[in-house]
Design a protein around this nucleic acid. Structure first.
Lengths: 141, 141
DNA sequence: TCAACAGTTTAGAATTATTCCAAAGAAGAA
DNA sequence: TTCTTCTTTGGAATAATTCTAAACTGTTGA
């Protein structure tokens, strides 16, 4: 990737962060660029931290955790809970669901219009539905 | 609960464990009796450990973890992943789904015949669907 | 009835993911 | 600039869970 393009992405990212009410600090812009620059992906804090390191961005793990949560809060990411051991974050915030491969922990998107959940009962009085998550657990065999 | 009834439950439980290929040791029979004796419940390792202590059963937390996993493996329990922080176990192994209240971490059953997931795509080649989990995340408001 | 083996339990250490903390550093406003 | 506020950071702290090695118990077969 050449320098101009990289800079353009970063300016774009900075604008998105500002729009989300987040100061476009260097760590945040770097992480958000990595996250949102390429196509949709599923990643953990460790994964992102390693990716940042490989890209020459030196950020602490604490900052990665902070950023992931702030981005999620801001609607730039979606957190996916499928495995008790670790938290995944999905750069695809559109309506969709997941296959979860229990053998290797991989997540695969299921387009939102390919799957449907019907007859979700009304939640208890005073409660509102925030989201309906479907996880199709698969394994070899 | 009188002694005879308690003993009957324990013998019944021992038989279930044996049938599942698990030696009906004292800790396992005690935990399984607590778990399966009353109606369906959702609990964590800590919860069960505390409940055992209250019932006068002294088991280590490691044993509780072992038992929960073995019972799950044996189909006596079902593990529910909704919260990255802790693991829930459900004594209801029948087909059903859950509301998850994000405010207080409570789980509420949704009967299996009340909800339907349609058009689940075929899993990738060589993979088999183990289960389809639906979590309806709700919160106050 | 009992020896002997394999499977279990246990306390506590170890591990893992994540959060907390207090001090040092950077962004935005005036 | 300078000030204020928000951020970052390394490292300590936490929390859930797993591991470990030694002690123990259920079961089997003599």
């Amino acid at each position: 990737m050449d320098g101009n393009k990289k800079q353009a992405i970063q300016e774009d990212t900075a604008a998105r962060l500002r729009a989300a009410g987040l100061r476009p600090t260097r760590p945040r812009v770097a992480l958000a660029s990595l996250l949102l620059g390429r196509g949709h992906r599923h990643l953990t804090a460790e994964t992102l931290h390693a990716e940042a390191a490989k890209a020459g961005v030196r950020v602490s793990l604490a900052t990665v955790y902070n950023a992931l949560h702030q981005f999620t809060e801001a609607g730039l990411l979606r957190q996916v809970v499928v495995d008790a051991a670790r938290s995944y974050f999905d750069t695809n915030t559109g309506e969709h669901q997941h296959f979860f491969c229990e053998d290797d922990g991989r997540l695969i998107d299921i387009p939102g219009d390919a799957i449907a959940v019907s007859h979700v009962p009304a939640p208890p009085r005073g409660m509102a539905v925030r989201r309906v998550d479907v996880v199709v657990r698969i394994k070899r065999g």
